[in-house]
Amino acid sequence: MTSLVKDTEPEGRPEIRAVPVRHYGRWVAAALILYVAVWAVYSVAHNERFGWDVMGRYFTADAVLSGIGTTLGLTAIAMVMGVVGGVLLAVMRLSPNPLISGTSWLYIWAFRGTPVLVQILLWGFISALIPRFSIGIPFGPTFADFSANSVITPFVAGCLGLGLNEAAYMAEIVRAGILSVDPGQDEAACALGMSRTKSMRRIVLPQAMRVIIPPTGNETISMLKTSSLVSVIAVADLLYSVQIIYGRTYQTIPLLLLASAWYLVMTSVLTVGQFYLERYFGRGAARRQTMLERLWANLRTARPAGKGTR
């Protein structure tokens, strides 16, 4: 220690020159992985049954593109329903009124406790349960009357099934976010004369967002894929569209791969969006980076030599 201190005084920081630890195991692993990768690429490229030309031909087919539109629409609507419903349910769940919090608990219990596929099917066959809807006062006059099939189209049923189910999951995510905010924040807001509602909207929820956004991003990505379940009630989403095509051409594998490729593209875009959303709600808390900066920083710290330079 003493010699180090003495060295630093006249000619600045002394550099340590040492031979770094050699990681021979990594070279062996790298060679093995490369070997397997080359083999995989080779066999995929030379297997006729992958049908790469078929994939190329249908990649931007009208039916596929409109299926993508439906998938995105379903995901967006279901997530909006999920987030709005989730916030509502979470705030209800934390209400001091036992009736309100109980109602929220019951909703979450029912919608989280049954398979979403079953819920979608139930909404799809709702007309068997309730053939007609009417708007009016219960036990009183009726103002309007619809048949269930004209209101709850398969698309609407899909949205309801996915969105109402998602609300139950989002409620728990939002609740965890709200509970993660220091109670002192709400107290400070109250002490300034804010109402409970205003404190929730202006102070607590924006901070809860930091905790809510990452799992919500996961939920959105998951929803994009879960939305393919609506193919069971004949909603022409991405999966159902390719199913129709391969039902006709029997090119099952290439078209399923095509759908997978499109799902990957969409989830990748969402990942980027999630990063910037997290950055926005992390303001005041974390350093601002672009995605490439963070990628670069992660790569640097992942390198064993990088640790020494810190």
């Binding site: 924040q185 400070a188 807001a189 004369g193 409970r196 005041g284």
Partner: peptide
């Protein structure tokens, strides 16, 4: 009522041990 309590608190300022500033605001 909550609203009236809030109104009363407007004329009382409070400073906390742990500051409790709103971290998402400048």
């Amino acid at each position: 009522r909550e609203k009236d309590v809030a109104r009363q608190r407007r004329e009382i300022g409070m400073v906390f041990q742990r500051f409790n500033l709103f971290p998402h605001m400048t």
